[in-house]
Design a binder for these strands. Structure first.
Length: 488
RNA sequence: GCCCCCAUCGUCUAGCCUGGUCUAGGACACAGGCCUUUCAAGCCUGCGACACGGGUUCAAAUCCCGUUGGGGGUACCA
């Protein structure tokens, strides 16, 4: 997915077209659900595409909500399974030119060849058994594949924008299968045909593709087509260890949403994985627009980068703090709903309270999901523990006095119950009792929130509302008195 | 096995191309402090790296070679 972000940034930055193509030539693995997940993930991250599968294509492929993702374009179809005839024609063309050949070796024979090569510590590749058979030795009607005739000598150079020139001896390249026995093309054939037909200028992908790039360059050569610009970016590894994220990356984007990450934060983080502004510029937080302007594909590092949740969490927190109150509230509502604190749809008369809560927790959120445990006490009554109602270096009687005085002072406030009137009242209480602010506020916090840790007290009380604040103080006072009775 | 890629603090990185200004800069994380009604946020300080070995050079993190280490490829997968 990080590589997709690089592709998108590069296209947007240069005013190019960003095209989404579905490569589904492996029929044994194809699942319509995956297509939807990828598109949904890209939409969420803000990676919009200028050309992509049309409504009809998506429907034929069994993708749900096809209308939501349909884009279309002049170079379609954009789903490879819809283009098989094209690949067959190109394969036939190569056959006719004598640059490819039919091969009917069985999987068993191929495996046997490989086993022998392994045993003799030889390079593992097809032994070219069928390469020099007479053209009519294998009938088009029998089960077979079509392989490319790789030149036996010479070198093929990949001119890569990040790695530089990478040179391969043709002798070490396998006679790549172009068309499988089920009639579908391999990735190698399909991507070359499509990139050419769709006029793709830049191929930006993971550097795990480097070793097979010469094979594709030779397909271009066999067809007499012009090469695109290659740009192989390093892979992203998993946090602790160094295992490759494999293909899990693209499909898990929606999981980041569920975990409470902002799309702009994930985007920011992903762009920084392998790229940095450099030249003494140490900016780390970027908006999407800034990245489109500043990103430089050719400055991307050569080495792999490890995914770090610590850094992502920090970036997410920064972006959360940068949101407006209303924006953050709207993004938080689904998470409140999921926690069961807010009904679906959100009632209008609940919004004023939510709007007062948001600023109280904004700088405390690392993930949107954190909102549940940070604000649970606003929605349900949590009974404070007996110990928490007694302040630091205070006895039960003093604590009870704090609660009783606080109750009467807060009862004297207006129904607006604003932060501005609560604060002087309670600060006055601190003075009146000759205690420390932390002692007094701690007791009131425990009584009204049921927690030792809460958002700032005055704002919290105001958001809670006068009725519920007084009610909770009353309960705490009862609790304290009962406790005293039992003791006596 | 064979082929390819990569190598700066624990992590992401600046610096490398155009050797000296690098006693290697920043960020995350971590530790301590300040602020403070708790928790955060913010601010300050600390900890912490040029994988190793050879060259080239007056001078190398920067250029060259090798070693080691890590990753990838080696499919009728992408």
């Amino acid at each position: 997915m990080r590589t997709v972000v690089f592709n998108w940034l590069f296209a947007r930055q240069h005013g190019g077209q960003f095209i989404l193509r579905i490569e589904d030539t492996d029929r044994t693995r194809y699942k319509p659900q995956t297509v939807k997940t990828i598109m949904e993930g890209m939409r969420w991250l803000g990676l919009d595409w200028d050309e992509g599968p049309s409504l009809e294509e998506l429907q034929r492929s069994g993708v749900e909500d096809a209308a939501r993702y349909a884009v279309g374009g002049a170079y379609g179809p954009y789903i490879q399974s819809e283009r098989v005839e094209l690949y067959r024609q190109v394969a036939q063309q190569l056959l006719d030119k004598g640059l490819a050949y039919r091969c009917n070796c069985t999987p068993e024979r191929l495996e046997q060849v490989r086993a022998e090569q392994r045993a003799n510590k030889l390079p593992i590749m097809y032994d070219r058994h069928c390469r020099d058979l007479p053209p009519d030795a294998i009938s088009p009607d029998e089960t077979h594949v079509i392989r490319l005739k790789i030149p036996l000598t010479g070198q093929t150079v990949v001119h890569d924008q990040i790695k530089g020139d990478v040179i391969f001896d043709n002798a070490g390249l396998d006679d790549q299968v172009l068309l499988k026995s089920d009639g579908f093309p391999t990735y190698h054939l399909a991507v070359v045909v499509d990139d050419h037909m769709m006029q793709i200028t830049h191929v930006i992908r993971g550097d795990d593709w480097i070793p097979s790039t010469p094979k594709r360059i030779l397909i271009y050569a066999a067809l007499g087509w012009e090469l695109p610009v290659y740009c192989h970016v390093p892979l992203v590894t998993m946090p602790g260890g160094k295992k490759l994220a494999k293909r899990a990356g693209a499909t898990s984007v929606t999981e980041f949403r569920a975990q409470g990450y902002l799309p702009e934060a994930l985007f920011n983080f992903l762009a920084l994985l392998g790229w940095s502004p450099g030249e003494g510029d140490e900016q780390e937080i970027f908006t999407r627009a800034e990245l489109v302007e500043r990103f430089d594909l050719f400055r991307v590092n050569k080495g792999p980068a490890a995914f770090s949740y610590d850094k992502l969490d920090w970036i997410n927190g920064v972006h959360i703090r940068n949101l407006s109150t209303d924006d953050l509230m709207e993004r938080l509502i689904p998470f409140w709903q999921q926690a069961g604190f807010v009904p679906t749809p959100c009632p209008d008369d609940l919004r004023p309270m939510l709007r007062k809560i948001v600023p109280l927790i904004q700088e405390r959120l690392k993930h949107l999901t954190d909102v549940a445990e940070l604000t649970d006490f606003f929605f349900t009554y949590l009974e404070p523990s007996a110990e928490s109602l007694i302040g630091k270096k205070m006895d039960a009687q003093q604590s009870l006095t704090v609660l009783e005085r606080a109750r009467s002072l807060l009862a004297a406030c207006s129904a607006d119950f604003t932060h501005e009137e609560i604060e002087p009242a309670l600060r006055g209480l601190v003075e009146e009792l000759g205690l420390k602010a932390g002692q007094v506020f701690g007791v009131i916090r425990a009584a009204t929130t049921g927690k030792d840790v809460s958002p700032p007290l005055f704002g919290t009380l105001s958001a809670l509302g006068q009725d519920r604040a007084l009610e909770r103080l009353d309960k705490a006072i009862w609790q304290m008195r009962n406790c005293e009775l039992i003791k006596n």
